[in-house]
Write a protein that binds this DNA or RNA. Structure first.
Lengths: 368, 368
DNA sequence: TTGAAAGCGCTAACAG
DNA sequence: CTGTTAGCGCTTTCAA
């Protein structure tokens, strides 16, 4: 219960103006406990090396003085840190929430902190942030997506070269990508796009549309679009591509629905870049008495919570978001424990068929 | 464009086993540029003090060597850091997303990083995290909510005592709270609850319900509930309280709707702890042909994006989420620039009336 | 089981 | 405008 101000100063320089903030240091604790700095240091890192009696004494002192270890100093001295830097396009985006959660939990149990940085989709900004983040000498780096400048990529490769594990999440390359040099945990976006097209075609549609998101420069959504178009073409089915207006995705979905019906009346099925867009379209359709899926089948992407609550339920593609986080954590931890670069992990997307794409006949059997 | 592997080592100690990671240091840059460390240091912090020609030379060396400043060392030496620690109950929760966004942006433009930590609602865990976070000697601390142990509170007060700005967001105390010692930026949750009750009563309801969230131990949602009940009682209106089952909020809302109609048939209006619950109830009602708002009026909280897209639109309370983040950033920055504790900020919640609570008559005029 | 000495990479303070 | 000196608070050898 000693007030912190009572904490001993360096005995020699007690009156000299101390530079650091006034918090008690290892030295202060040691002084009070009647040992040396290193003993207090050991108390935290390997108490089993100390005499039980010493442990006891130090613990009490630490508590009474209110000592909090200075991480910066520790990491500077040891040359290694317990921070895992994570770069995510948008911290606030629900899509990444589960991934971040899984990653954070996985790391925390092993005693690592997560330095989370939202980078936006502008590659240029990413480079700057990456540089800042490297200044923390992170124990590992987790980045999202392929879309980055050559300089940024070089920074990552250098970091890995210097022994820092670098893992890229949310993506998995189909072919040789110039970025495949990094360990990747994610799913194949192109294949996901193909999956979407295949489903619409399988359910009998000959005129389909793909609605791209208007807000993102994220290459991954474009890969899905390309996969969709490619698959449709392969099956001899016509596919038109529309781009949703920027702004609120629910609004965008509704607007695009109108465009679609007006400009492309022959189209009978539409796939969307994400469930928010599809939801907006579905709600708009219901409000205007457009029969889903009879007049128009709707297929989303991402399996957001709302999707199965809509009427009809929104068919969609389930992405392994939480799993990506968990596996990324495991991968990073493994890599840090032994310096062997771990393998990539390709996770599966699964199609979830609900009312919005089922032919009317089958829909009867679906429970509400 | 020199490959970073060319980066100079300490010329003297090139072969000696260096303790730190192998990255180039100020010393390395200085050596190559033909100046001393401090000059390179100044190049980063106050280049205007250097001769233009020196600036040029240092810049080139920095680039060719691939130097990245070591933040830990810098902060240790200077005693101040550029990190603002932020503790949020749940990083993945959409409610906090906008706040975090606003905070992060506000801080970034002033050159601060945000160390974001998700603490969950368990007070015990918060204390541990707080302790870890303090080890980073943050330039400021932003915490969420009142719910914490005495020890955690003491840590915060100590930190403030040591000159670290501490700001609490998302809450604002009505009466004297034992935690009111911290600067607070938020809104009055009790008043928000009262607002909700008042609206339902104003629109003619005599039997109302409040549906609490089943997943959180967050005191703030309980404050809203208490405000609701208190207001109802004051107006002589009966209010029953239900608690949604844990798990998916949309499911929970649907389930609670059934309970409500079965067990409390006289009730004609229900307020929900958040828009997700209310949305679940609304969708469920539509699926079962229950007239909203004629049979049952529904009122949410939080003004989530989906709410205005439902049919009927979900009446709700708009909370100043983004504003909280922005103001918190401004407050923290102000406090760091001059050591005068800034004032609390009480922000307003506003009622947003849509179809789900409007009497049938007025609803005719509303645009779809 | 504990200690002494020597830095980690950087910046504050005071010269020149 | 640039340099010198002395740490920041901790951990790493190596010794006792």
């Amino acid at each position: 219960m000693l007030p912190p101000s009572t904490a001993a100063q360096h005995p020699v320089a007690a009156k000299k103006t101390r530079r650091g903030h006034g918090r008690p240091t290892l030295y202060d604790v040691a002084e009070v406990a009647g040992v040396t700095q290193i003993t207090v240091s050991r108390f935290f890192r390997s108490p089993e090396l100390l005499a039980p009696e010493t442990v006891q004494r130090v613990r009490q002192t630490v508590e009474s003085v209110g000592y909090v270890p200075n991480l910066q100093a520790g990491q500077l001295a040891s040359g290694r840190s317990r921070v895992v830097a994570t770069l995510i396009p948008n911290v606030g985006h629900s899509v990444f929430a589960k991934t971040v959660q899984g990653l954070a939990e996985g790391l925390r149990v092993s005693g690592y902190e997560m330095l989370l940085t939202s980078k936006g989709y502008q590659p240029q900004r990413e480079e700057r942030q990456l540089r800042e983040v490297l200044g923390w000498s992170p124990a590992a780096i987790v980045v999202t997506g392929l879309h980055r400048t050559a300089a940024a990529q070089q920074l990552l490769l250098d970091a890995r070269g210097a022994g820092t594990p670098v893992v890229e999440i949310w993506d998995y390359p189909t072919r040789k990508t110039k970025h495949r040099e990094l360990v990747q945990i994610g799913f194949n976006h192109r294949a996901a796009g193909q999956l979407m097209a295949a489903h619409l075609i399988d359910t009998g549609h000959q005129h389909v549309a793909y609605v791209d998101s208007g807000v993102t420069e994220d290459v991954r959504v474009h890969l899905r679009r390309d996969g969709f178009i490619g698959q449709a073409r392969k099956c001899g089915v016509q596919a038109v591509v529309l781009t949703a207006p920027p702004g609120d995705a629910l609004d965008g979905g509704g607007i695009i629905l109108k465009h679609l019906l007006d400009l492309h009346p022959r189209i009978t099925a539409a796939a969307f870049a994400n469930d928010h867009l599809a939801t907006g379209a579905l709600l708009q359709a219901r409000a205007h008495g457009i029969a889903i899926p009879e007049r128009l089948a709707l297929l989303g992407f991402g399996d957001f919570p709302i999707s199965r609550h809509l009427h009809p339920g929104l068919s969609t593609v389930h992405t392994p978001t939480a799993e990506i986080g968990r596996i990324a954590a495991a991968t990073v931890l493994e890599w840090m424990s032994r310096p062997v670069q771990p393998a990539n992990a390709a996770l599966d997307c699964t199609l979830i068929v609900r009312g919005s794409t089922k032919p009317a006949l089958q829909r009867e059997n679906a429970k509400p």
